[in-house]
Structures are given as structure tokens and as C-alpha cells.
Simulated scan of single mutants.
Amino acid sequence: MKTTRPRSLRLRGFTTILLFLLPALVLFFGLVVAPILLAFYASVFKWNGMRGLPTDFIGMANFTRLLADEVFLGDLWRGLLLIILSVAIQLPLSLGIAMLLNQRIRGRAFFRLLFFAPYVLSEAITAVLFMMILSPTEGLANYILGWFGVDPLDWFADPSSVMMSVFIVMTWKYFGFHMILYIAGRQGIPRELTEAAQIDGATGWKVFRYVTLPLLGPTIRISVFLSVIGAIQLFDLVWIITGGGPSHSSETMAVTMFQFGFKRFQVGYASAISVVMFLISLVFAVFYQRYVMRRDLEGASTVLGDQR
């Protein structure tokens, strides 16, 4: 009896846990795993998405077509451009504002709310708002530029500047989220460390450079990870504002996938694009967690191990 009772209790506990997890597992496999497997399956077929499952097997032809598709190759370059701009401009801007709003200044709670508010808005509302602000004829931006004698700009209609315009919208939409991450990370740094550095004669910049910034490392690495993944999968803002135009100059991989899958009904080819997006994101995530966030994950594992 003494040997069977603990086993029965463990079995009962395992059954209870499984029952609680079952609804989440069903949703996860039905809404995440199954679509991924279906995309892999459809990517090796020529299929219009109609009349049941695909049957016209073409092997790797869709992926070979991707390598010769100038639009898709341009999508890769535009995605890389957004990643570089986000890491080089958007995140440092968020960090600078976060450090400023961490100081004891009047109205800092209001400014935190003000800068975070754009992130709460949906992508559709943000897109429509900036379509009005950056309108070439009646937009507020060109009206203000006119005060300084600058000719009106075609923000979203000029192929040479459309990606920068999209990046401006991205920055306005998402920098508040990263700002809040940095503020939370900064508040997690013990005040004694900065005070000790100041007692030793460190100036404000040196305190930030040698104390605050290194201790913000885990938060910054998470922020970079989210920013890169978001740039790879960007869809809503671009689709509503430009639809990928003019002349594909603002298309992203997600927009191209949507165009072929739901506009041209080339679901097999669109599935191949989605598979490439998934693999790029997966490879980046694995590499980033393995080599960049390794110390952060090991530290989390150590803490969890000590709590057991």
C-alpha cells in the first residue's frame, strides 16, 4: 500500500494537469502547429486553395521560383533595411526617452502615458491616421514643412522615400512599447549601485555607460529580439498604407505572401513564402537565444532551479 499510493497520487496529479492543459494544447495545435504543417505541405504543390487538398505535386519548384523572383528578393532587402533602422534608430531613441522619463521631472507619468499611447492603438487606426497626416495635398506634415519653404513631399508615393515613411510610422507606433521595457528594466537596477558609482566620482554619462547600460543588457537583448521578429513579419501597416506600392517598393514578405495567396490564388507559392518567413524567424530565434541570450537564459534556469 505504501508503494502504490504515491504512484496513484502522482498519476492523479498528472491527469489533473493534463486536463487543465488540454484546452490550451488543442488551441495551440489547431491554430499554430496545424497551419504550419499545412503550409509546408502546400508549398510543394501547385494549388489555388480551392477544391480540397492540393494534388498537383511540383516538388521544390515554388522555392526555386522564389530565388528568381525580384520582388521577393527585394522583400528580403527591405526587411533587412527595417531591421537595421529599428536597431540603429528606434531602439536607441526608446532607450534615451526611457532614461529621461526615469528622472524626477514634473509630469513624467503623463509623458510616459503619452508616449505609450500609440502602442495601444491598432495598426489599422495608426495606418489611417498617418495616411491623413502624410497626405501629399492636405496632410499636416506637408503643411508644417510649408512654413519653412519646403515643397510638399510624396511620402508614400515616391519609391525612393516610401520605406523611410513606413519606418517613421513604425517608430511612432512601437517605440513606446520598447520605452516601457527600458523603464521597467531601469527601475529593477538597485539604486545603491548608481549611488556608489557617483560617490566614486563617476559622472552621469559614466554611470550610464558602466553601470546602467550593462545591467540593462537582458532588457535590451529582449527588445532587439522583438524588434527584429516584428520587422520580419510586418504586414498590417504596409498593407493598409501602401498595399506594397508604388511598384512593389514597400512590399514585405508578408505582403507578397498575401498578394499571391488571396489576390492571385497561388496558394502553393504563397505557402512557400510563408515557409521561408517561418524558417528565417526560427533560425534567427534559435541563433539569437543560443549565442546572444545564452547568459540570460542560463541565469533564469539557475533561479528556477534554486526555487525548486
Rank of each mutant, 00 (worst) to 15 (best):
K173P: 10
S135P: 02
I273F: 01
P118M: 02
G176Y: 10
R5C: 00
E192R: 08
R308C: 01
V71E: 14
L67F: 13
A34W: 13
T302V: 13
L215E: 01
E123S: 14
G243H: 09
L100F: 15
T203P: 00
V224D: 05
I220S: 09
F177Y: 15
E123N: 13
I168R: 02
A61P: 00
F287I: 15
A39R: 09
A300P: 04
G149V: 08
V238I: 15
T171G: 05
V255K: 01
Q259Y: 11
D154I: 08
R104C: 00
T4P: 00
N62V: 06
L18P: 01
M60R: 04
I229D: 00
F278P: 01
V120F: 11
P218I: 07
G30V: 13
G244N: 06
R112C: 02
P118V: 03
L113K: 08
F45H: 15
F20R: 00
A109Q: 12
M60S: 11
L25N: 05
L304S: 04
N142K: 06
S250R: 03
P35A: 01
E298I: 11
L213M: 15
T212N: 03
D75V: 14
G299I: 05
Q266E: 15
F130K: 04
Q90I: 01
M99Y: 06
L93D: 03
F265I: 02
F148C: 02
Y288C: 10
F278H: 01
W47H: 05
S271G: 06
V224M: 14
Q259L: 10
T3L: 08
L304G: 01
V292L: 10
L101F: 05
P6W: 00
I222A: 14
K263Y: 08
A61L: 12
V267Q: 02
R10E: 13
N142D: 10
G176S: 09
A285R: 03
E195T: 03
G188W: 06
L213K: 04
S122I: 09
T55R: 15
I17E: 03
K263I: 01
L193S: 03
W155N: 11
Q233N: 14
L80F: 13
L193Y: 14
G299H: 11
L73F: 08
P159Y: 11
K2I: 08
D56A: 11
E138M: 13
G230T: 02
G59S: 12
M277K: 00
A202K: 05
L279Y: 01
F265N: 07
Y143L: 13
L27K: 06
R290E: 05
P159C: 10
